[in-house]
Design a protein around this nucleic acid. Sequence first.
DNA 1: TCAGCAATCACATATTCATGTGAGCAGTTA
DNA 2: TAACTGCTCACATGAATATGTGATTGCTGA
Lengths: 211, 211
Amino acid sequence: MSSVVGIVEDNKKIRGLIQRYLDMQDELSCPVAVDSVEEMVEYLEEHPAPEVLLMDIQLPGMSGIKGMGVIKEKYPDIDIIMLTVYHDSHKIFNALRAGASGYLLKHTSLPEIKESILKLLDGGAPMSPQIARKVINHFQENAPKKNTDSDLTPREHDIVNGLVDGLSYKMIADRYDISIDTVRAHIRNIYKKLHVNSKAEVIAKSLKGEI
Amino acid sequence: MSSVVGIVEDNKKIRGLIQRYLDMQDELSCPVAVDSVEEMVEYLEEHPAPEVLLMDIQLPGMSGIKGMGVIKEKYPDIDIIMLTVYHDSHKIFNALRAGASGYLLKHTSLPEIKESILKLLDGGAPMSPQIARKVINHFQENAPKKNTDSDLTPREHDIVNGLVDGLSYKMIADRYDISIDTVRAHIRNIYKKLHVNSKAEVIAKSLKGEI
DNA sequence: TCAGCAATCACATATTCATGTGAGCAGTTA
DNA sequence: TAACTGCTCACATGAATATGTGATTGCTGA
């Protein structure tokens, strides 16, 4: 059973190259390759939807990012991989926010494109390495102040993690190979330090990043 | 010229396996594999720093996430890849926020680990496919308003809020001026709908935005 | 060297939770 | 009207939690 892929790309040469390559793979077929979002929308109205679309950003008419929104609204099950030369953060994040399931740069080789599609069908999220790096950096820039170094000891942190993982005292005792009474003792100390008096409050504080 | 990799992992077997495998690669060497952040910190004080660290999250003593902060502060040039069994969003995002340059799940094969390290050294950001997917989903969730219409009734939402605030059943009953038995009844229904069976899990889900 | 803290364990008790079973009432919809 | 759903309350029981008191060991800094 081969998976169906569609292409939206205005460069005729690239488009043809990718289509022929993918269509010749056992696992894939690529019956449709058009050069604008508008054409793809027309196609979708008269044919069964592909599982995956490769889409450029810079397109005649509607842009790939806008087009993705349009297509995902009517066909939310289609996974879309952006395939573009743009590597500036703004375009990347807009594409991801608009619903892209992957983001590849155009110098990606044909076999890598194929691998990316297969990875996507398998639940992954293909990204070119440089893109992945930018996405990760995004988290670190927006990192909320890592304040609140509560004076919990390492062991107390272990216990807190156990609580957050939803473990009972007994399960925590087992995880760290200590007595349940010791767990109790640690928890008492944690409550004192955090000025709380229930598991619930500790878990809430921890998940809110206040520990 | 081979790149130097260090390992922090408390499972002796896994640690030894990875170390031997990496050390045998032409492109890499792995002179240090310890089972806690504390030991790695000691090592770093007396030896030249590795370029890359593989680090577990669940460790004796200081957790991998906290440990990463400590290490990155003194040695910001070390790239750290988390190598762990955890795939819940909070741990992933906390790790990335704390400065992780990659995040692999523990079922990753040795050759894949090697490839990930090389990719990292080449400016990429290695992630297991499931992780990449969650990271991407994060963008999409935070963009188009969280609509998460869980099928909780308004009253049930009240109760959940009470739990998140760390209140006991009795305090929730007082807050909404209903009987404690009613609170119990609501909570039972909430547990059924959310498929959980403890306050802790409800609080976790709620704070993760899954309600 | 002594005080203090982290970590460990023990025993005890009152409270809270999780869960089962059952039921009444109001408002909505089939 | 009958069926559903949301909200309310009650009684009961075993498990888990919160809290008090106390103790030992090992390490650290004044």
